[in-house]
């Protein structure tokens, strides 16, 4: 038995093959560039079409040297790659266009100032959307504080208590997710806003909560279903009562899943405009008291700025959209980080 050997990777492609692939890619890019320059294929769409056509051509060309099975495999791979690119493209397109159009107004004043002493048509180095950011976060926070426990509890009712009305609760929650957002707003308007006599962050949060609840409850239920029955049995075998076992064994096991449930709920409502129209309205200055009257929010800020319709106000709207995206990403990252600290 020899004790000496050189580590190799027989499953990897040879160097020459890799170099050829690289050269092919370069050649493809060059051809695509020429085609886009001198034909009707222009802009990002043109690039996409040309690059895809080239990739398809290369795949088919290379296929000549392959066996039937390998050929099928590579064709399927091409198709799947194309499908995933097509599915991904709108998202990239939205993000890129929002980023490009929004970055113009993304200045320090945008995230620290409000619009109290600034008109929408003022230069972009005046005024900002800080009041809208604060309003959005405040309302989403209140909505989460109300909805997350309710959602998790209804998930627990379906999966742990398994009460007689489990089926009813599930159906009601499912149908709630079909409620149009404007209806949620009007409902809170006729009940809460009418009764208190004023628009407020709390009213906005309640309307958002109605929209959040189905998402949070459904996700909680799905996540709780993943807890193996073995763990529940182990809890019972240790002399635990059901609520104790749920609290100490079941919920911590799916902590990250429940955080995700809350997060999906937040993502569902943070960009909602319609329910806020009738409940929180909007404001041009900071509001921190959730019951003291109309409050601004990012979606309403974007909506308002678009309605003004001047160049600077539309720029402000794009920047507002960019900030909204950044806030959502920030929340996702934060939640992932918190969830990632699980002991696993």
């Amino acid at each position: 038995m020899s004790m000496q050997a050189t580590p190799t990777r027989p499953w990897e492609k040879e160097k020459t093959a890799r170099r050829n692939n690289g050269l092919t890619l370069l050649l493809g890019a060059l051809i695509a560039y020429v085609v886009v320059l001198f034909t009707g294929f222009a802009g990002p769409d043109g690039w996409a079409v040309v690059l895809f056509a080239l990739a398809a051509a290369f795949t088919l060309f290379r296929n000549r040297s392959l066996s039937t099975k390998e050929r099928k495999d590579s064709r399927a791979r091409l198709l799947i790659a194309a499908a995933s690119v097509i599915a991904f493209a709108p998202w990239i397109s939205i993000f890129v266009s929002v980023a490009f159009k929004g970055v113009k107004g993304l200045r320090p004043n945008f995230i620290v100032s409000d619009m109290r002493t600034t008109t929408p048509d003022d230069f972009l180095d005046m005024g900002g959307a800080a009041h809208a950011i604060v309003g959005s976060l405040l309302m989403v926070l209140i909505a989460t504080v109300i909805t997350l426990p309710l959602g998790i509890l209804s998930g627990l009712y379906i999966t742990e208590v398994r009460g007689r009305f489990s089926g009813v609760v599930r159906v009601v929650i499912q149908s709630m997710s079909g409620v149009p957002s404007i209806v949620a707003g009007l409902f809170i308007y006729t009940t809460f806003v009418d009764a208190t006599g004023t628009f407020s962050a709390l009213a906005g949060a309640l309307a958002l909560g109605i929209l959040m609840l189905p998402t949070v409850a459904r996700t909680s239920e799905e996540v709780l279903k993943l807890v193996p029955d073995d763990l529940r049995s182990a809890g019972y075998a240790l002399g635990a009562r059901q609520w104790r076992s749920t609290l100490i064994v079941v919920l911590p096991t799916v902590r990250s899943g429940l955080i995700t449930a809350g997060l999906l709920g937040v993502a569902r409502v943070i960009g909602e405009t319609a329910p806020l129209l009738a409940t929180a309205l909007s404001n041009t200055s900071f509001v921190f008291n959730p019951v003291s009257g109309p409050i601004g929010s990012l979606p309403m800020y974007i909506f308002g700025m678009l309605q003004i319709g001047t160049e600077n106000s539309i720029n402000r709207a794009w920047t507002g959209a960019l900030v909204l995206l950044i806030v959502v990403f920030g929340l996702f990252t934060l939640a992932r980080y918190v969830a990632g600290k699980d002991k696993r």
Partner: peptide, 9 residues
């Protein structure tokens, strides 16, 4: 139990 089931969290 048959399958080891320590509490994962």
């Amino acid at each position: 139990f048959q399958k080891p089931n320590p509490f994962p969290a």
